[in-house]
Design a protein around this nucleic acid. Sequence first.
DNA 1: CACATTTTGTGATAATATAACATATCATTA
DNA 2: TAATGATATGTTATATTATCACAAAATGTG
Lengths: 142, 142
Amino acid sequence: MQVITTECQTVEVKLTGNRKAVLLLLQQQQRPLSAYEIIDLLRPQIGRIIHPMLVYRCLDFLLEQHLVVKLVSVNKFMVLPEGATEPGQCLICERCQAVTFSQSSNPLQQQRRKIAASGFKLNQQPVEFHGICQACQKDDNK
Amino acid sequence: MQVITTECQTVEVKLTGNRKAVLLLLQQQQRPLSAYEIIDLLRPQIGRIIHPMLVYRCLDFLLEQHLVVKLVSVNKFMVLPEGATEPGQCLICERCQAVTFSQSSNPLQQQRRKIAASGFKLNQQPVEFHGICQACQKDDNK
DNA sequence: CACATTTTGTGATAATATAACATATCATTA
DNA sequence: TAATGATATGTTATATTATCACAAAATGTG
Ligand SMILES: [Zn+2]
Ligand SMILES: [Zn+2]
Ligand SMILES: [Zn+2]
Ligand SMILES: [Zn+2]
């Protein structure tokens, strides 16, 4: 057993070797990774072929523990940045794929409460907004 | 050339046979379909094998024209329901996969303005919220 | 018509994700 | 400690979603 302190909670979880490796990688990278990027980055560390199933199973576990979030619109996984409270929001640039995570701001929290009041039970994953980031807009004007 | 009147605009587009078939199917079904569901449903109508590429190309065109929206978190495509103004929001049930489209309500519009003011240029696709619908919650309590 | 542009047809392949089943490890208690 | 059940891992195969590449056909324009 091992105590993990995250932004939103202190969890006591059985963090086996594989699960720890996936979590550490995501913590090091501080950016969203696809399952297959995780496989490629982990192979040198672990020193043998890693099957997709193994990584997906680790990710499922880490998602259940709220240690990791999935960006469902781009099929990538990330740890919550330092100091983040759930569930937050992400701005995803469709040009450069940059992802900016931030806390849910007031209107979004209000929207979530409104949805909850209607009887729909929201999950705890970030809401994903898609568009073009400021940098890419500037590039377009050149 | 052909004039199409949608919820948000009247577009004059060249709607070729394939594109028309995909659009009509989505209009008939009034629910989100995956590209491969579209292929399966279209085959009997068209009478020959339809390649994925063909369907994805039609969908790309219809997306560009804002005749269709993509639910990026579940890889499905739908026409906007009668009377919808863009960009709207969707509630997606993770248990039964039911999708409920609705207009962006006030707090969400406010949130969108806030994001726009920060310099991020949002696209016109619906924002997708995930959770468990009321019906599935009731089922769980049995 | 000649020519450029757009659309279509088609095969191959990439990227993402799960099913199924055998084996191994861990936890509980007889 | 040995038996047992629960959990985790290893592995192969397969399902699902999406794009690349290139040739042929249709369409628009002067
Ligand atoms: Zn949490
Ligand atoms: Zn960008
Ligand atoms: Zn539109
Ligand atoms: Zn449901």
